[in-house]
Nucleic acid binder design. Structure first.
Lengths: 334, 334
DNA sequence: CTGAAAGCGCTTACAG
DNA sequence: CTGAAAGCGCTTACAG
């Protein structure tokens, strides 16, 4: 039998109220008694039962995370890194992370997950929603706990958001390509709708505009974010159009695209200059190593967790947007 | 205010006992009453409070997962895929997954994590322990819930284990290299001690022995599993020894090794034949695409979850080991 | 400065 | 076939 607060109280010769207060540091207890309580806890290897604690205090010390990662997607580092950053930070503050993948990319699934989390009395929710508009949160979450949006900033609900500066990153990539003399610069990007893709597209357009290059919609390819689409995407782009450079706006598409490029022995950067998105180790092992826009994925997780902890302490109104800078990592592909 | 079982009972005009029983399907209730209860639950959007449920039933419907993934390790797909497989399967059975990374690779950290999980009343634990001997579990877990070991099979505690057939995979890789005419086959592998590395080493030795090739310890390099070590590992191997082929026994080392190989423009397979471990998308974008031993990582997660669910239902004694087959994926690097 | 006691929302013997 | 009630292990007003 595991021992509870009652056993500790008996062992220390005090009331359970006192034990509770020394555990939570929630009112003055004399040093002498404190010592006794700690000793008793030590001796009995006491661990507070968090179900009881949650039930009573309506707090679970647990925060939910919902990310859209398909099981087929053996390449999506981004959310995995974010999750790690979150978990690491939460752990240091005594919080647990409940993980859920939305594997279907259905909005109903997302809602169902949140309902499940609700019955676990989560203290907060991190979500990379697949929806553009999350007003459904008004009914499901009802401001019972803070919501922090990661990577994407959907409309319709009040919550902080933590994202990378996708516009700036895309802008820098395209500007770099332009500086190298390219004018026919293709874009391969994920499906529009979520802010992430929208912003990168915008950055691309803005860079072209700022440098007086007309925007040619026929050399931008919008594709589902998976390896296959990356492969087919460059293939189509190269078959039909005379581009000399390509900016690929996410890491999964980049990987698929590189497969096609390496298969056809297309010379980089001689025949085609490329800049990819996200800086993971594998971008260094292609031939040549890829120039990429780095997003601080782990740091996004850390930041999101910090924001969440603050919100839990101080649920003041008003939401804020946190932008983490991207960086151009120059290698040999352009 | 969220509504509880009491409100549902009132609304349906029955006792809370009856409501509880229809929720849990735990004793006969007439169809008529059942209908009323369901209606009431629907109407009030009732979600059982799982803290209360856990406190009362000593079950949390939550299972913990501890994996050793370093924050610096932007390459470790394996456990991420396993985690996904676990979470997907658990979700379908109404279980939640509590995630924890052991980011320090300290055994004390591992123990601390488990203690934290204990106070959350987890119903089970998945662990890829960094320890060879986990007898400490006897004190911490005390058979309070089943433990399923993933990827590694440490000694000292009774639990099922789910792993890939590392010995067979390594054997097949080396055999393939031998069949291609190689006799000086190097090995780059992760640190010994955990069963995973041990077995792959064994497979390597066995394949050599079975084909009458003397085992030369000077061409095996044991290294920490990270990108840097992979890079330095091949570098050392190639500088000092005349190997014509190389088997790299895990994916992180493979990535680092490929970096060195591509940097030095070493021709594969002409100058060096290589077979890597783990089949992730990025193994297709190197030049040439890599021949690898595929481990079914997602499936290991699914299997582990299934075993866990069975154990929870039926905590019979005796543990079993489940081996999932590996497969040689032939591409162009050998 | 510390304790006795109510109550969080459920499940589950016990009655009838 | 269904209900009244005890109790899981805590936290936190309320007293003194």
């Amino acid at each position: 039998m595991r021992s509870g607060i009652k056993q500790v109280a008996e062992h220390a010769g005090v009331s359970i109220a006192t034990v509770s207060h020394v555990i939570n540091n929630t009112r003055y207890v004399s040093d002498e008694i404190k010592r006794k309580v700690y000793e008793a806890m030590e001796e009995l290897d006491y661990r507070p039962n968090s179900a009881a604690r949650s039930l009573r205090s309506q707090k679970s010390n647990t925060i939910g995370l919902i990310v859209p990662v398909l099981p087929s997607d053996t390449s999506n580092f981004f959310f995995m890194m974010v999750a790690q950053g979150i978990q690491f930070t939460l752990k240091q503050h005594g919080y647990h992370l409940l993980l859920s993948n939305n594997t279907t990319e259905q909005i109903e699934d997302e809602q169902e997950q949140i309902k499940l989390f609700n019955s676990k009395l989560i203290d907060g929710l991190f979500i990379a929603s697949i929806a553009e508009d999350v007003s459904y949160l008004n009914e499901i979450v009802r401001s019972n706990y803070p919501v922090v949006f990661i990577d994407r900033k959907p409309a319709g609900y009040n919550g902080d958001s933590v994202l990378a500066d996708g516009l700036g990153g895309a802008y820098e990539a395209v500007k770099t390509l332009i500086a190298k003399g390219h004018r026919r610069i293709g874009l391969l990007t994920g499906e529009l709708g979520i802010t992430t893709s929208n912003e990168r597209y915008e950055g691309y357009q803005k860079a072209l505009a700022d440098h007086g290059i007309p925007w040619d919609p026929s050399i931008v390819k919008v594709a589902e974010s998976n390896f296959e689409s990356g492969y087919e995407g460059v293939k189509a782009l190269l078959a039909e159009h005379d581009i000399t450079a390509l900016f690929i706006a996410n890491n999964v598409l980049t990987m698929g695209a590189m497969r096609y490029i390496q298969e056809r022995r297309i010379q980089i950067p001689a025949e085609l200059a490329v800049i990819g998105f996200d800086d993971y180790d594998w971008t260094q092992i292609t031939s040549p190593p890829l120039t990429v826009i780095r997003q601080p994925s782990y740091e996004i997780g850390v930041k999101a967790a910090e924001i969440m902890l603050k919100r839990i302490e101080n649920p003041s109104a008003g939401s804020k947007e946190y932008r983490l800078p991207t960086a151009l990592i120059m290698r040999d592909s352009c």
